[in-house]
Every structure is written in structure tokens, then in C-alpha cells.
């Protein structure tokens, strides 16, 4: 039964439960997954079918990633629930090297499934050692798909399609959105691989939102529409080698590209769009809101808010 006015996390877990109800043997594991706070609410209400297992585990994240990939290598299905993205760094060696072995030497038809389902601590006040929020960096390092669950519909589609699909990927959730109402907005168009979702359309500007910036992008779009400006608004996941055609076509049509990326990373996926546009003869203006080269104080215990300047965006679109 659909939830009435679900929160961001409740809507996602309801979708997960729909998948785990019918997926056969699956291991969902994580520290405190079925004890205490259920990983700060990440696993609250989680259920599996009669063949599935929800397993509490200890503090050994490097081993957890290896275990998940070992299960995948053996043809099984596993999902690792993680409290924060920083912990996944401990298992990066496995994410890179073990998966490289599997994709190089084992046929895809034999692959099981391994998903890392992890919270990105982006609500601020967690302190410097809980402030890493760059989900896309993992896509770049391990060359694997990383999905950031933003709106209710993109989250539902990604969970339904990828949560226990053959292969290896990371699904990231935003801590700062946990208690917020789920973002209920229809997707107008989606790429077949769930790499890109278009939530709004218009001919005056192209807004591409990365990481957990979709709500900021939609807020900007509302400000635009209040003054008669209409924009294409995209949520873009981090999929290595993804087809950028939808973003490029939109940018060529609007001649105005606005990139919004709240992640603190040097490497920006949005750069790939800019590079592609630069190689074409069309003149497309680019306005980039990002945290490339973040200041030291952005890593401390503070509000950690990323606030794109709407007035600057309006001036950019109007050419003033």
C-alpha cells in the first residue's frame, strides 16, 4: 500500500521492500542494520522475503566490501548498508581491484549482484571527518555506476532496476533530506540506464544538477518561472561512459547551461558536458555552481549549506 506523504527515507525503503519481497535469496548486511537506530534510520522498516537474510555485522568495512563482491562472484545477491560515505573509503581497494578481476575474467552471465547502499553525511555539524560528500569520486575511482537518489521517482526507478541487478554499483542517499517529505514530482523523461532524469522543460536555459542538488535546481527553476523564464532541469547520476546527448541537445537549444554540483570534489562530471560543447561550433554559455577547491572551513562542524545564487543565474540567462 502506498505511504501517505512519506519522508524521503521512508519512500525509498518502501521501494526497497518491494524489491526484496520477490528477489529470492539476498543478504542485506550492515552494522546495526537490525539493532538500535537501524543505521540512523537507513534500515528502519526493512524487510526481506523468506529466503532473504538481514544480518548485523561488526566494524570491518574493508572486509564488508570484499564479502559483498565475493557473494557477487559466487552468483549471489548482497547489499551493504553503510552509515556514511567515508566508511566506504576503507573498502576502496576491494571496490577497484576485486571488481576489476570479475569484469575482466568472469562472464557477465555468471555475475551475481552487489550494491552499496550508503548515506552521504551532508547535513552539516557532523564534523570534519564526516563531511566528504563526493559520490561521483567513487564512480571515477572504481569506474562503476553511482546513483544519487534525489526525487521520489528517480529513486524508485533506480531502486527497482538496480538494487539487486547483476553487477556492482553504489546507491547514495542524502542525510540532510532524510526527514524531509519525499520530492514528489513526475519525471518527464529518463535515459534508459537511469543516468539522466529530466524533471522540467523549457527553452531558456539548461540546468544540470549533480550529487544532491536537484532540490536546489528546482528551487532555482521556480524563481525562473516566477519571472517568465523556463528551463530544462536534469538530475544527472554518475555513470561512467554515459550518453550525454540529452544534455548536449538541450544546451545547444537553450545556449545557456547552468551546472549545479554540491559535492566537494575537484573532478566534476559536469566538465565532460562542457568539454563536449567546446568541441562543437555552437556558442553555449556556461555558469557553474560548484565547490571545486573547497575552503578549509567548509570541512568543519557548520551548516555546510550549498547556496546557488539565483540572481546571478537570472543575470546570466538575461545576458546582463
Amino acid at each position: 500500500m502506498p505511504l501517505a506523504d512519506p519522508t524521503y527515507i521512508a519512500q525509498i525503503i518502501a521501494q526497497v521492500n518491494e524489491v526484496t519481497a520477490r528477489c529470492g535469496p539476498v543478504l542485506l548486511f550492515g552494522e546495526n542494520i537490525n539493532y538500535g537506530s537501524r543505521i540512523g534510520g537507513l534500515a528502519r522498516g526493512l524487510t526481506v522475503n523468506s529466503e532473504g537474510v538481514i544480518q548485523n555485522v561488526g566494524n570491518c568495512e574493508l572486509t564488508h566490501l570484499g564479502v559483498g563482491l565475493g557473494i557477487m562472484l559466487d552468483g549471489g545477491q548482497a547489499v551493504q548498508f553503510g552509515k556514511q560515505l567515508d566508511f566506504i573509503v576503507l573498502g576502496l581497494e576491494q571496490a577497484c581491484d576485486t571488481f576489476n578481476f570479475i569484469r575482466a575474467y568472469r562472464p557477465r552471465s555468471s555475475w551475481g549482484s552487489f550494491t552499496i547502499f550508503v548515506v552521504v553525511c551532508d547535513q552539516g555539524y557532523q564534523g570534519p571527518q564526516s563531511s566528504m560528500n563526493a559520490a561521483g569520486d567513487f564512480a571515477s575511482l572504481a569506474n562503476i555506476p553511482v546513483y544519487c537518489l534525489n526525487g521520489a521517482e528517480d529513486a524508485a526507478r533506480v531502486v527497482r532496476r538496480h538494487f539487486v541487478a547483476p553487477g556492482f554499483r553504489i546507491l547514495c542517499l542524502s542525510q540532510r533530506h532524510f526527514a524531509s517529505p519525499a520530492l514528489q514530482l513526475p519525471v518527464e523523461w529518463a535515459a534508459p540506464d537511469e543516468s539522466i532524469f529530466r524533471y522540467k522543460s523549457g527553452d531558456d536555459a539548461t540546468v544540470a544538477a549533480f550529487n544532491f542538488s536537484l532540490r536546489d535546481a528546482l528551487a532555482m527553476d521556480r524563481a525562473f518561472r516566477a519571472v517568465g523564464i523556463r528551463s530544462d532541469v536534469f538530475h544527472v547520476n554518475f555513470i561512467p561512459g554515459m550518453d550525454l546527448a540529452a544534455l548536449l541537445d538541450s544546451s545547444r537549444r537553450t545556449r545557456k547551461l547552468i551546472l549545479i554540483d554540491d559535492s566537494k570534489t575537484v573532478t566534476k562530471f559536469g566538465d565532460a558536458i562542457v568539454t563536449e560543447l567546446a568541441s562543437s561550433s555552437l556558442d553555449v554559455g556556461v555558469l557553474s555552481y560548484c565547490r571545486r577547491g573547497s575552503a578549509d572551513n567548509e570541512y568543519g562542524a557548520n551548516e555546510d549549506r550549498f547556496l546557488p545564487d539565483v540572481d546571478r543565474a537570472l543575470a546570466f540567462i538575461r545576458g546582463t
Partner: peptide, 17 residues
């Protein structure tokens, strides 16, 4: 040491299945 964790994962899958 990498194969330690992977081996444990294979054993875990055998147990779950």
C-alpha cells in the same frame, strides 16, 4: 590479504543459499 574477504564472501553466499 584481498582474497581473504572475497573468500569469506563466497562462504557467506554458500551459507545464505
Amino acid at each position: 590479504g584481498n582474497n581473504m574477504a572475497v573468500g569469506a564472501g563466497i562462504a557467506m553466499n554458500r551459507k545464505v543459499c
